Amino acid sequence: NLYFQGLKYMVPGARVTRGLDWKWRDQDGSPQGEGTVTGELHNGWIDVTWDAGGSNSYRMGAEGKFDLKLAP
Rank of each mutant, 00 (worst) to 15 (best):
V37F: 02
H42E: 11
Y9Q: 09
D21Y: 04
K65M: 09
R25M: 15
K8Y: 08
N43V: 08
L41E: 06
F66V: 05
K65A: 13
S55L: 09
H42A: 10
G53H: 03
G35F: 02
V11F: 09
S57G: 06
S57F: 08
R25W: 13
D28W: 05
Y58G: 01
D28P: 07
D28Y: 04
P72Q: 13
W50F: 01
G64Q: 07
R59N: 02
L41W: 13
E40W: 14
T36A: 04
L41N: 06
G19M: 06
R59A: 01
S55G: 09
D47W: 13
L68V: 07
W22E: 05
W22H: 04
F4N: 13
T36Q: 06
L7C: 15
D51A: 04
Y9H: 12
T49I: 12
G53T: 02
D21K: 03
T49P: 00
K23P: 09
T36L: 07
Q32P: 14
A52V: 08
Y9P: 07
E40S: 12
W22C: 06
E34S: 12
G53E: 01
A62Q: 05
G53R: 02
W50E: 00
G61A: 00
L20I: 13
L41I: 12
L68G: 00
T36V: 10
K23T: 10
T38H: 07
I46V: 10
P12H: 10
G35M: 03
Q32N: 14
P31T: 08
Q32C: 15
A14S: 09
T36E: 06
N56K: 07
K8P: 10
Q5S: 12
G19Y: 05
T17G: 07
D21Q: 03
A71M: 10
T49L: 11
D21T: 03
P31R: 06
G64I: 04
W24K: 04
T36G: 01
H42P: 02
D26N: 11
P12L: 13
G64D: 09
A71W: 07
L68E: 01
G33N: 05
D47Y: 12
M60C: 10
Y3P: 15
P31S: 08
F4I: 13
F4K: 13
K8A: 11
V48W: 02
N56P: 03
F66N: 03
F4W: 15
E63L: 08
D67K: 01
A52F: 09
D47I: 13
T36Y: 06
V11N: 07
S57T: 11
N43P: 03
G54V: 10
D26L: 07
K69W: 12
N56R: 08
S30W: 11
W24I: 05
I46T: 01
G61S: 04
L7Q: 09
M10G: 03
P31K: 07
M10T: 03
G13N: 05
R15D: 02
D26T: 08
L2S: 15
N56V: 04
W50Y: 00
P72S: 13
Q27N: 07
E40R: 11
L2V: 12
T36C: 11
P72M: 11
D51N: 01
E40A: 13
R15S: 02
P72Y: 13
T38F: 07
D26Q: 09
D51C: 04
D26K: 06
T36K: 05
E63S: 10
W45M: 06
T49K: 13
M10L: 13
V48H: 01
G39Q: 07
G44P: 01
T49N: 09
D26V: 05
R59T: 01
G44R: 01
S55K: 09
S55Y: 10
M60V: 08
R25H: 14
D26S: 08
I46M: 06
S55P: 02
V48R: 00
D47T: 14
G6C: 15
G39L: 04
M60L: 07
L7K: 08
Y58D: 02
D67E: 09
H42S: 11
N1R: 09
T36R: 07
R25V: 11
E63T: 05
F66Y: 10
V11A: 09
Q27W: 06
G39M: 06
V48F: 01
T36H: 04
G29L: 05
G19A: 07
G61M: 01
Y3H: 15
N56E: 08
G35D: 00
L7D: 07
G54R: 07
A14K: 05
P72V: 12
A14G: 04
A52R: 10
G35K: 01
S57R: 14
A71C: 11
D67N: 00
R59F: 03
W45H: 02
N1S: 10
H42L: 12
M60N: 03
D67W: 02
G33T: 11
Y58F: 03
V37T: 04
G35N: 01
V16A: 01
W50P: 00
P12F: 10
P31N: 09
V37C: 08
G29A: 05
K8H: 12
G13L: 04
K65Y: 07
D67M: 02
G13D: 01
F4Q: 14
Y3M: 14
T17M: 13
E63I: 03
G33E: 06
G64K: 06
R18N: 01
